[in-house]
Design a protein around this nucleic acid. Structure first.
Length: 378
RNA sequence: GUGAGUGUAGCUCAGCAGGUCAGAGCGCCUGACUGUGGAUCAGGUGGUCGCGGGUUCAAGUCCCGCCACUCACCCCA
């Protein structure tokens, strides 16, 4: 938790912690970045390439109260880029995040951008913010009064109406950036314009994690009410060093997979529907069972999705099941077939039915219908 | 962490002021249609009414506790 920050909500109230069978206190990771940094440190990945870019996908856990678009176990797609402090890398990473959410089909997207300075210029700002908070103590909510001492930056994203009104007059971080940070931020914006990535500068975006420096951003999508953040990220130039590595500038983002899906659903996105199976094998009588089982297996080995009857029900019932499974074809094996050595295959869409050699079936399935036999082996 | 709501058949839910209230629709099974689906009709299967206490002659139905889930706040993915 060293990386995430002591006064963040994640650490203060969302840690998924429990005692395991060995009596150890275990905490499930609430986010990915520190783990990635640790893994890179432990395995010596830094230094293998001048710029190291990584991506991952995995579950994260936060002990929140679940609700629409927020789960205690959720999936994140993470992207991290190490090794360059150049604004071009910021632009590259932000553009990737933007492309991800747009390509997936999300609507009502907005990208909010800010810079929260570095360890040289931020302290001055935090101090002024603290002073500002002290002057308005009696106008702020209880939470914010605590924040004045513990973490003044958090005053900025309080959702309480009265706090928001007060904070409108608060000093803005962008006015405090040192020359280097200001220059960096200007370049990031310039590059984003170059790449046609639309964004809005929002000095209120400070992010919930302590390790960020300079660039921070958040992407929201409409549909889930207050749970509208689908991507969050930023630069963290001091984290690697903080965790025991050589000073390494870096930035990254995390995209909430479940939340993106939930947002898409809320937006009425049509997900590709279940296409059904290739073939259902109807079985009539005990003698037919082994033949059906072999056929099912050989078709599966060819890559087809196949189901067969295991309950010994009437053909009628089996056909109903085939229909329900949206089987493209139904193969029937009963007394007649066992006698003739052929198999009755029914095209469930057209209703056409033919007696075929077992060897022909894969060709017919692949073709999606009966042909006139021109290219089937005879 | 704060507040609100819900938990009755596989699923979606109805059960009005405590006494045939254990139901409906869908699904599933069987048959009408002896080896043939998507429609219709008939019959049937199916529930410790979240768990544990309490009140009462009698409790899904009232009270208390617990658990789970949902929603909102906070915050975030």
């Amino acid at each position: 938790m060293k990386g995430t920050g002591e006064t963040t909500d994640i650490v203060e109230k969302e840690m998924y912690t429990f005692i395991d069978k060995g009596g150890r206190s275990v905490t499930l990771r609430p986010e990915g970045t520190p783990s990635v940094v640790r893994a890179c440190l432990e395995n010596g990945l830094f230094g293998q390439l001048p710029v190291l870019k990584l991506s991952y996908i995995g579950q994260m856990f936060r002990y929140d109260r679940p609700q629409a678009g927020r789960y205690r176990e959720f999936w994140q797609i993470g992207v991290e880029a190490f090794g360059s402090a150049d604004p071009s890398m910021d632009a590259e990473v932000i553009q990737l995040a933007y492309q991800l959410v747009t390509e997936v089909g999300l609507k009502g997207i907005s990208l909010e951008l800010n810079s929260i300075g570095c360890k040289r210029c931020r302290p001055r700002y935090v101090e002024d913010l603290r002073e500002f908070g002290k002057r308005h103590v009696d106008e702020l909510c209880g939470k914010c009064v605590e924040r004045i001492e513990r973490n003044p930056m958090r005053l900025l994203d309080c959702k309480e109406e009265r706090c928001r009104i007060v904070m409108k007059e608060a000093p803005v971080i962008l006015d405090y950036l040192c020359d280097e940070c200001a220059e960096h931020f200007a370049k990031v914006r310039e590059y984003l314009d170059l790449l046609d990535v639309p964004y809005a500068v929002n000095p209120r975006v400070v992010r919930g994690l302590d390790y960020y420096t300079r660039t921070v951003f958040e992407i929201t999508a409409e549909g889930l009410g207050a749970q509208n953040a689908v991507v969050g990220g930023g630069r963290y130039d001091d984290l690697v060093e903080l965790m025991g590595g050589k000073p390494t500038p870096a930035l990254g983002f995390a995209a909430g997979l479940d939340r993106i899906v939930a947002s898409l659903e809320a937006q009425g996105f049509e997900f590709p529907i279940d296409e059904g199976i290739d073939c259902f094998i109807a079985v009539l009588g005990r003698e037919a069972k082994p033949v059906a089982l072999k056929l099912a297996t050989s078709l599966r080995r060819e890559g087809f999705s196949v189901e067969m009857e295991h309950l010994g029900r009437s053909l009628r019932a089996q056909m109903k099941t085939a229909d329900k499974l949206k089987a493209r074809f139904t193969a029937m094996i009963g007394e007649d077939e066992l006698k003739s050595g052929r198999i009755t295959l029914r095209d469930m869409k057209s209703g056409e039915q033919r007696s075929v050699e077992e060897g022909e079936i894969p060709y017919i399935l692949r073709r999606g219908g009966f042909s006139d036999g021109a290219d089937a082996p005879s």
